[in-house]
């Protein structure tokens, strides 16, 4: 039964991807990419990766589609007919694909419990993490504790991406009077529904943030959901009013505070006599210390991801508004 669902989903995935090649309307291509992301999230759920599916649905399908649409607003939605032939790329792709398929023939059988990937490290995570860390969600304990250093690196990468986007685009504060009328200004239904929903979305983000220890969720997803709430606010009420609620300067400070919070937990545990990011030293009881450490660094991750995603959206949005004025 599960295999059948997998096959159907994979077939839909392939159709979506193939359709993306032939469509010339970039708007439709981006929408198909959103569909592709949601389909792959479904496949992840079928493969037991609930955390990954959650991230893919919120980050891959949500934020990146919004950002791509923002770019399309600036660059135009039609792709021009390409002049050079498509035979050579097709040949290269076929050869690479054949090589990869040949490679998969050597792969161990799918889903077999004795595959080499399950022999090393993973059993230790599965057996010891409940005792050592005491959290039901193993993904969270591996993410935040065993591989905490990696996650710090990822957070810094996200932060660096923000710096890159700001260096390339920058967020301009608009003069109040030359802001063009947003298409949704006179949209009463949207206003009412958005007012009703935004607090609920933020509440859900907080739930995801702090429930990540027990179920799927955590800082990455929560940050993105909170950013989505503010993106909705910006779309409905316009950029200048969103700047009044959370200004870009404040967000940039917030992004760095998140990274600093994460790193300072590491230094604090060094100060307590442990190694970098050794949470067991944060409290007298090692397990309680682990809990403190994970909650704080997840908070740091959440704050950074929220601030970075929203700032990037602001940067794209203010670009679009500026080109509207010109």
């Amino acid at each position: 039964m599960g295999d059948l669902i997998d096959l159907v989903l994979l077939a839909m995935l392939a159709i979506t991807a193939l359709q993306m090649i032939f469509l010339k309307d970039l708007f439709a291509v981006v929408m198909l990419f959103g569909i592709y992301s949601f389909l792959s999230a479904l496949i992840f759920i079928n493969l037991d990766a609930v955390d990954v599916a959650f991230t893919e649905a919120s980050v891959g399908a949500g934020i990146s589609t919004v950002l791509m649409l923002g770019t399309l607003a600036l660059t135009g939605r039609k792709e021009k007919k390409s002049s050079h032939s498509s035979i050579l790329p097709l040949l290269v792709v076929c050869i690479t694909g054949a090589a990869l398929i040949y490679g998969t023939l050597d792969m161990p059988p799918f889903g077999h419990p004795n595959n080499p990937i399950h022999e090393h490290v993973a059993p230790r995570y599965i057996e010891e993490s409940p005792k050592e860390i005491g959290l039901p969600n193993m993904v969270t304990s591996v993410l935040a504790s065993y591989r905490g250093f990696d996650t710090l690196g990822e957070t810094v990468v996200v932060f660096a991406a923000l710096i890159g986007v700001l260096a390339l685009l920058g967020v301009r504060r608009q003069e109040e009077n030359d802001v063009p009328e947003s298409g949704f200004k006179a949209h009463h239904v949207l206003h009412v529904v958005a007012r009703f929903f935004i607090p609920l979305i933020i509440l859900f983000a907080l739930y995801v943030q702090f429930h990540g220890d027990f179920g799927p969720g955590g800082g990455f997803q929560a940050g993105v959901i909170a950013a989505a709430a503010f993106i909705l606010y910006t779309l409905v009420f316009g950029l200048s009013r969103a700047f009044a609620v959370v200004g870009p300067k404040f967000l940039q400070a917030l992004a760095s505070i998140g990274v600093l919070l994460y790193a300072s937990v590491g230094f604090f545990s060094m100060y307590k006599g442990g190694q970098f990011l050794d949470y067991s030293k944060l409290a007298t009881d090692p397990i309680v210390g682990q809990h403190y450490g994970i909650i704080i660094i997840e908070l740091g991750v959440g704050i950074t991801v929220f601030a970075v995603m929203l700032s990037i959206f602001y940067a794209f949005g203010s670009q679009a508004e500026r080109s509207n004025i010109q």
Binding site: G183, F184, H187, V189, L190, V193, F196, F197, L200
Partner: peptide, 20 residues
């Protein structure tokens, strides 16, 4: 409950912007 509120709103916004 959420779907009961959001999906009519989405349809409404879509129709209105298409009209615009």
């Amino acid at each position: 409950a959420f779907l009961m509120i959001t999906s009519p709103t989405a349809s409404h916004a879509l129709a209105k912007s298409a009209r615009h």
